[in-house]
Design a protein around this nucleic acid. Structure first.
Length: 667
RNA sequence: GCCGACUUGGCGCAAUUGGCAGCGCACCAUACUUGUAAUAUGGGGGUUAGGGGUUCAAGUCCCCUAGUCGGCUCCA
């Protein structure tokens, strides 16, 4: 038997000709190999000169392979129970996998239980995943019962069209994976797939679970048929599965919709309509404090405050182009003042009024209210502008996707020359303010235009200059910068600030967008130093996005434990016995004199009950006082996490509370 | 908008195959005044989301509407 030289995990090694990856890696957690940079099954036979390395199950690639294999097992289970089910696609996704099926009846929760049982059986059999290279023609015959797979084979030459189906048909050769029962050697199931897969199903172990079922459009296009998708999650061990489930439970506990109810912050009364929130007194305090602080900072940073109405005649949005582009997303018009005679002939032309979906055209009209000089620029207009968008019913979600919202909206009119300086300022301002609200882990996304797509308007040279400028500004911030090609608005490129919250989820927060379109459409101009008329560049920026959304994000970030400066009730006094109520009231009066939101709980409840109530209400400071405290001129602190500090002198206690509020710190 | 599930006092939930709408918290009253997460007793409160149908009988079965949830598509 002849031998060949290869490289294994960086070291040279001599192996027998025709050997595969199974003998190369001692570690049982190696589930695949990367040969010359490409992921392959362990069963892949190595050739002379190959460079291979082991792929561990817990590595990002390994997890994808595990999850993709779990998706295959799910599909086999579905077809075992329902042989009529047609296969869509089944890729790995973050934390798990899904598989789409065309079935007569959608899956019910009980079906998922039965499918898990069927999957368990397949997993316990230890079926092997065997790769078999095929041709388009052969696969089409072999998979004649699987119309969706055949469609994918037809798309193979066009990877853009394949999209999410790239796990099935890659750019290279076409392959089918046979699932082989190790007892009998029989092929029990097969699927079109580029691979690679785990050596056998046993490695899926018990670290997986099916999570939910839902419909999804075939190939992500809403004009296509909806298939039934089953989602699952898969992990190398049961402990990691459990940890994942605990993360989901933690996210559910922080859900702003749940906390909004529990803490009495806001609600969505059915009588008002979907996606239209009311803020209750406690939520109102948080919101007002958020807004007040934002106003103060904007004022300090050279923004001028403007106001505009909620409705406008249609011509404004015709001129801006919004009606042509986004009429579907707007509330329908109110037809006013039309007069019709008895024959149905219009005697007086009416006017259509629209609820505004955005504030920019109003600010533009303020810009146009007088002749502008380069000396006026940059001109920064800020407004808490309430806008209304007719979001599709299925996309509404708590405060994060609503139909009525208030944007902390600003429009900056700048000369091409001060664009870079102004963008740098805006980015610094945005990041500083977000930090003050308690978010401090960011990265940036640079959304640019897609070459050749006609939706993007404006002079390509200006696009290029603007994109370069944004790139420089973003890079100078020192933050991680993620490109988002094709993600620009039709009127200009943008930077968006993504923030990670307390449990590591990312939220798109602020956006800073350049706009070359609206200045053109509204024929904006200013007089340059040489007396010529020049067109300003517009920067749109919102920090919170919308106040509602930011409120929701902060609620989840803090899990309802708002820091004292934002907390609706900052201090509650709990007397040990009724006799000490007066003593606490005196302390409360001192705090109130400084604007602290403090109440004393004089109810009939037992002290223990009061502590429980106010802890659950997530009040940052609970102050207790009894005989010992009064004798010492002191008071006792109890915090939300249950820890306590007794016998703090009253002066010190007051100073401490005031400082925590002033410094915007968490307690 | 599409697919599916769901909607029962203020809140969280129960109610066999269709057969008396219940529990906990909250609320109100009375008593009690306690040193760090639920004092006791009593009381009030629901046209079961809204409308229509089937049935001797509907929270339960069917249809329509609204809303909520999970996804898909979308997000100026």
């Amino acid at each position: 038997m002849s031998t060949i030289q290869i490289t294994v995990d960086g070291a040279p090694r001599e192996i027998e000709q025709g050997a595969d990856g199974f003998g190369l890696f001692g570690d049982k957690t190696i589930v695949a190999q990367r040969v010359n940079g490409e992921l392959k099954d362990l069963a892949h036979k190595l050739a002379a000169g190959d460079v291979t390395e082991g792929v561990a199950i817990s590595s990002p690639d390994g997890l994808n392979i595990l999850r993709h294999s779990a998706a295959h097992v799910l599909a086999q289970a579905v077809q075992t129970i329902n042989p009529e089910a047609k296969l869509g696609i089944g890729p790995p996704i973050t934390d798990g996998f899904y598989y789409d099926f065309d079935v007569e009846t959608p899956f019910a929760p009980e079906d998922l239980k039965a499918l898990e049982k069927a999957m368990d059986r397949i997993i316990r059999q230890g079926q092997r995943f065997i790769r078999r290279v095929t041709t388009d023609g052969e696969a089409t015959v072999e998979l004649s019962n699987e119309p969706y797979k055949i469609e994918l084979i037809g798309l193979k030459g066009n990877q853009d069209a394949v999209g999410e189906g790239s796990a099935e048909v890659g750019a290279g050769e076409l392959a089918i994976y046979d699932n082989v029962d190790p007892q009998t050697g029989n092929v029990v199931w097969k699927d079109l797939c580029r691979g690679p897969h785990l050596p056998n199903t046993r490695m899926i172990g018990n670290g997986y679970a099916l999570t939910r079922s839902a419909a999804a459009y075939w190939r992500g296009n809403e004009n296509n048929k909806q298939l039934q998708r089953i989602y699952g999650t898969a992990w190398p061990t049961k402990d990691e599965l459990r940890a994942h489930q605990e993360r989901l439970e933690e996210a559910a506990r922080r859900d702003h919709r749940r906390l909004g109810q529990e803490l009495d912050l806001f609600s969505f009364p059915e009588e008002i309509g979907s996606g239209l929130a009311v803020f209750h007194p406690k939520g109102g305090i948080i919101r007002r404090v958020m807004e007040d602080y934002s106003r103060k900072r904007h004022e300090e940073s050279g923004y001028e405050f403007v106001y505009s109405p909620h409705i406008t005649k249609s011509n404004l949005f015709e001129q801006s182009g919004h009606l042509a582009w986004y009429a579907d997303g707007m509330f329908p018009p109110m037809k006013m003042d039309e007069e019709v005679d008895e024959n149905g002939v219009v005697r007086k032309q009416g006017q259509n009024y629209y609820l505004k979906p955005m504030n920019c055209p109003f600010h533009i009209l303020i810009f146009k209210a007088q002749a502008r000089s380069y000396r006026d620029l940059p001109l920064r207009m800020f407004e808490f502008g309430s806008v209304y968008r007719y979001e599709k019913s299925g996309v509404l979600h708590g405060l994060t996707r609503v139909r009525g919202m208030t944007q902390d909206d600003a429009h900056l009119f700048v000369t091409p020359d001060n664009m870079e300086e102004e963008l740098t300022k805006v980015l610094g301002f945005v990041l500083g303010l977000l930090r003050d609200y308690g978010l401090d882990d960011f990265y940036l996304e640079l959304s640019t235009k897609e070459e050749g797509n006609p939706k993007f308007v404006g002079d390509p040279a200006i696009w290029e200059k603007a994109t370069e400028t944004l790139q420089r500004v973003a890079t100078a911030s020192g933050l991680e910068l993620v490109p988002d090609p094709g993600g620009a608005a039709f009127y200009g490129p943008k930077i968006s600030v993504q923030a990670r919250d307390a449990i590591g989820r990312t939220w798109q927060m602020s956006t800073i967008q350049l706009d070359f379109n609206l200045p053109e459409r509204f024929d904006l101009e200013y007089t340059a130093p040489d007396g010529s008329k020049q067109r300003p560049v517009m920067i749109h920026r919102a920090l919170f996005g919308s106040i509602e959304r930011f409120f929701g994000v902060l609620t989840e970030h803090y899990a309802g434990h708002f820091p004292p400066w934002l907390a609706p009730v900052q201090v509650v006094g709990v007397p040990i016995a009724e006799a000490f109520s007066g003593y606490l009231h005196d302390i409360a009066d001192r705090l109130k004199a400084h604007g602290v939101r403090v109440t004393i709980d004089d109810s009939d409840d037992r002290m223990q009950k009061k502590i429980r109530n106010h802890t659950m209400a997530k009040v940052p400071f609970i102050l207790l006082a009894g005989g010992e405290d009064e004798a010492a001129g002191a008071v006792s602190f109890r915090f939300r996490d249950g820890h306590q500090e007794n016998g703090i002198p009253v002066d010190e206690a007051v100073a401490r509370i005031l400082k925590a509020i002033e410094d915007k710190v968490q307690v």
